[in-house]
Structures are given as structure tokens and as C-alpha cells.
Amino acid sequence: MNQSNLETGKVGEEIAKDYLKRKGYKIIEQNYKTKYAEIDLIVRKGNELVFVEVRTKKGEDFGTPEETIDKRKLRKLWGNARAYTAWKKWQRPYRVDAVCVVLRYDNTIERLNHYENIGLA
């Protein structure tokens, strides 16, 4: 992958982290890695655990960040969440969210959307 794309992703993740913090979420893990996958952010609010996938794009000329989350990715996200909750013996509710960030070319935020509980349907 292109180095600058990696950077964009990093910037986006930081933005998302700040945003969620301000919304009252507690950050549990960042870039949690398992043998199989990586979970961008794991946060918590009340008794609910939230797995967050962060998608960042620079400008929307080549498609929106939302478009890049397809069924396959959703299945993967839910699989990771299930694996994590099983590993940590988490018995309370959890969900999967997506935070889509669009940046301008000077890395300032053009828009940020937080989609809660994105299902498999």
C-alpha cells in the first residue's frame, strides 16, 4: 500500500478517537491485533462494548469511505468482535460501528459520520 494512504488512515484514526472520546466513549484498545485481523478501535460506553471500524479518504472524488465497507468486510468485523468477546469473556452487549472520515488535502476534516450498529443486512 501507498505510504501516504497509510498516513491518511493513521490521521483518520486519531480524529475518530478524539471524536469518540468527546462523545463520552472510553477507549479500551487501539489497533488491537489478533493473529487474523486488526480492530481499529474498541471503545466502551456504559455496559456496551463497541468495535469501531475507521475509514478515511482524502476527498470523495474517487468514491466515498462508506462504499468501501462491503458485505465481506462487515462479516469480518462481526467475526472479529465475536472472537474478541469470546476471548475476553465479555458477557454483556456489544455492537459494531463505523466512523467514516473525509479529509481535505491539508488533512483538515471535511466531514465525519458515525454509523452506529451496522448490521449484516
Binding site: Y115, N117, I118, A121
Partner: peptide, 8 residues
């Protein structure tokens, strides 16, 4: 309005 934008 809720949920990830998509077309199904």
C-alpha cells in the same frame, strides 16, 4: 437514516 449508507 440509520445504518451505513448502501443500496440493497
Amino acid at each position: 437514516n440509520r445504518g451505513l449508507p448502501g443500496f440493497e
